[in-house]
Simulated scan of single mutants.
Amino acid sequence: MKRAEQYVQEFKSYLQVEKHASPHTVYYYLNDVNFFLEFLLSESISFEQADPAVVRVFLTKLYEKKLSRRTVSRKISSLRSFYKFLEREDVVAANPFLRLVQPKAPAYVPSFLYEQELEKLFEASDLEAPLGQRDQAILECLYGTGMRVSECAGITIDDVDLSIGTVLVRGKGRKERYVPFGSFMEKAFRRYLQDGRERLLEKSKEETGKLFLNSRGKPITERGIRLILNKLVEQSAVHMHLHPHKLRHTFATHMLNEGADLRAVQELLGHEHLSSTQIYTHVTKDRLRTIYMNTHPRANRE
């Protein structure tokens, strides 16, 4: 009989090869599975013996640790997938997590930037310097397309078609989508490709197809993009916490606030389920006020 660790490794391969899960997802799934296996070991129970009663005890332990409902929900989801895999492999007869009701996560409203805040960020880069041109192109890319930071770091020169204004984005699960972009992003890309990128590439003396390069002329990393955004915040003297996903939130919010169709935004973001996009249907207070003043019969003030 195989040991639990062997099945965990097989589950890892399943996530990577069959589900095309991201390294981030694989890390958390395995972390959650190993956490449960340690619990079973402390209770002298094998992973094949886990049943709904054992799972309820485990759930109690999670709440005793004062974990958030979101974290508990994620662990349950990870373990449900693990036992679904074991069931498929005929290792267990039933999935003990199948009928477990996940704790309801608190309502989540993503934060976003107002246009005035964005303008200060777009004015922060030195467009005469190679790094400034690159930073501006990255900022335009994240806000102009709503792509994830991993997708942005992975763009190649061949993915970008400046003639028709589209970029090929490789998303989660190796799914590809074409996303259009406008004149501001096109201008930033042309400036960077014709000048800044060439000067950065000279520093490494190595050819690469990746679009965005670091200060040494090597392909930029996700961490590198996050550091660039932090630098732009400092240069613009705005007080905010800026991360790449906040620009994705901003893209979706601004699109929907201006009347974009929900399913169109879903496709642009690369969401598999519409429910993932619906969290952006909140509107700003300014827009609510504008709608009210323009539509309510007794809203007009003399």
Rank of each mutant, 00 (worst) to 15 (best):
M1Y: 13
V8T: 10
F11G: 02
Q16H: 09
V17Q: 12
S22L: 08
T25N: 06
Y27H: 13
N31G: 05
N31Y: 11
N31C: 07
D32E: 05
F39P: 01
F39V: 02
F47N: 02
E48C: 11
K66A: 15
R70N: 10
R74Q: 12
F82W: 09
K84S: 15
L86F: 04
P96Y: 07
P106K: 09
P106S: 10
P106L: 09
Y114K: 14
S125K: 06
D126W: 12
G132W: 03
Q136S: 05
L139C: 09
E140M: 01
G146D: 12
A153N: 07
I155D: 02
I157Q: 14
G165E: 06
T166E: 13
R170N: 10
G173E: 07
R174V: 00
R191F: 02
Q194C: 11
R197W: 08
E202P: 06
R216G: 00
I220K: 00
G224M: 06
I228K: 00
L229F: 02
L232F: 11
V238M: 11
K246N: 05
T250E: 09
L256I: 10
G259K: 00
E267C: 04
I279F: 07
Y280A: 08
Y280T: 07
T284I: 10
T284G: 14
K285M: 15
L288H: 09
R289S: 11
T290Q: 15
Y292F: 13
Y292L: 06
P297Q: 10
R298C: 05
E302R: 10
